[in-house]
Write a protein that binds this DNA or RNA. Structure first.
Lengths: 168, 168
DNA sequence: CAGTATCCTGTCCGATACTG
DNA sequence: CAGTATCGGACAGGATACTG
C-alpha cells in the first residue's frame, strides 16, 4: 500500500490520521462507503449535508487517496466514488471508534453494531497486540518516539518512555 | 463504566465518538495524557496551542467525563488533569488511528510507535473479532443497524445488510 | 503558573441559485 | 442527477493583554 497522504516527514501519526478522518462529515461519508454507497445523492440523503460541503469533502478524500472518482456513465458524465485500498484500510479505525461508544451502552441500546455477516453475530471488537493477544489498553503498552522522530518529539520523550500515568 | 457523554438515544456511535475525539487539539491533548502529562503548561508546551483554546478544550473534556480536574496545590489553587476510566478507554481508538498511518510507513520512517514497555518491542496493533481472531478489515464484517436504531438508520439499512462494497 | 477576557481573522457550513 | 458558485452567519483559533 502506498501512502497517498501528503504530510511532512517526522510527523506524529495521530496528526496525519486526524488530517484525514478528523472531520465530522468525512467520517460519516466513509461510513457510507463501507456500507456500499457510492454516489453523490446517496451520501447527501444519508448524511444530510449541503452539496457544496459534500463536493469539498469528496474532493479532499480523493486528493488524499482514500476514494477514487470513476465515471459510470457518459453524456452527461456521472461519477461514483469508490474506496481505494488505502481507504478500505481505514475500516479498523472507524470500527474502533464505534466500539468505544458501544462499550458504554447495553447491547439493546446500540444504534449501530458490527456484525459477522457469515453468522449474523454481533462483534465487540478489540484492539490487540497480535504477538501476545493482549489488549493495547493494558498499561504495559505506551507510545514512544520512533526512529524518524524529530527533535521536538524526541526530546519530549527523552528519559520518560517508562513514566506512565497511573492506569488504575 | 458509566457513559458521561451526553447525547440523544439512537445516535450513531461514530457521531458520538467524533463529538469527543473529533477535534484535532483534543486528540493531541489525550495523547499527552496517555504519556503521563497532567498540567496546563505541559500541554501548552508540547502541543503549542493558545491558552484560551487549551482552556476550552480541557473544559469540554472534563464535561464529557474524559478528564477530571483535581487541585494539587492551594493558594494559589493549581489543578492537574487526569484521565478517567472512560478517558483511558479511549486509548485503543488513538492506537488504531496511529497504527493506520504507521502501516503506510516503513518501520524506520515512523515518528511515533507503540511499544511493549516490558520488552521494548514495537507493537503493530490489530483490530480483531475476539471470538475468531479475524481482523475486522475482513469483508465478512460489516456495520448494521442495532436494536436501538431509529427509523432513519433502520430504513437506511433495511434490506441491504449484506450488500457490501467489493472489497478487492 | 494557570488561567480569563477581548479582538480579529479564517474557515466551516447551510442556504440559495444556477448549469448541463 | 450531480454538481458549481456565491452569500452570510457562526465559530474555531491565534495574538495579546490582564489577573492572582
Amino acid at each position: 500500500m502506498t501512502a497517498h497522504v501528503r504530510v511532512e516527514d517526522r510527523e506524529c501519526p495521530l496528526s496525519t490520521t486526524m488530517a484525514v478522518v478528523g472531520e465530522w462529515w468525512t467520517v460519516l461519508i466513509l461510513h457510507d462507503c463501507f456500507d456500499g454507497f457510492t454516489r453523490f445523492d446517496q451520501f447527501q440523503a444519508n448524511i444530510g449535508l449541503s452539496s457544496s460541503m459534500l463536493t469539498a469533502r469528496l474532493r479532499t478524500l480523493v486528493e488524499n487517496g482514500i476514494l477514487t472518482k470513476r465515471p459510470y456513465r457518459e453524456r452527461p458524465v456521472r461519477h461514483e466514488y469508490l474506496l481505494t485500498e488505502l481507504g478500505r484500510s481505514l475500516r479498523p479505525v472507524l470500527v474502533a471508534m464505534a466500539a468505544w461508544r458501544n462499550a458504554q451502552l447495553a447491547p439493546e441500546e446500540r444504534a449501530m453494531i458490527l456484525v459477522d455477516t457469515g453468522t449474523g453475530r454481533e462483534v465487540e471488537p478489540a484492539v490487540i497486540d497480535p504477538e501476545t493477544g493482549r489488549h493495547v489498553a493494558d498499561p504495559r503498552y505506551a507510545f514512544a518516539a520512533g526512529p524518524a522522530a524529530g527533535e521536538p518529539m524526541r526530546s519530549r520523550y527523552a528519559g520518560r518512555e517508562r513514566q506512565l500515568a497511573p492506569e488504575s
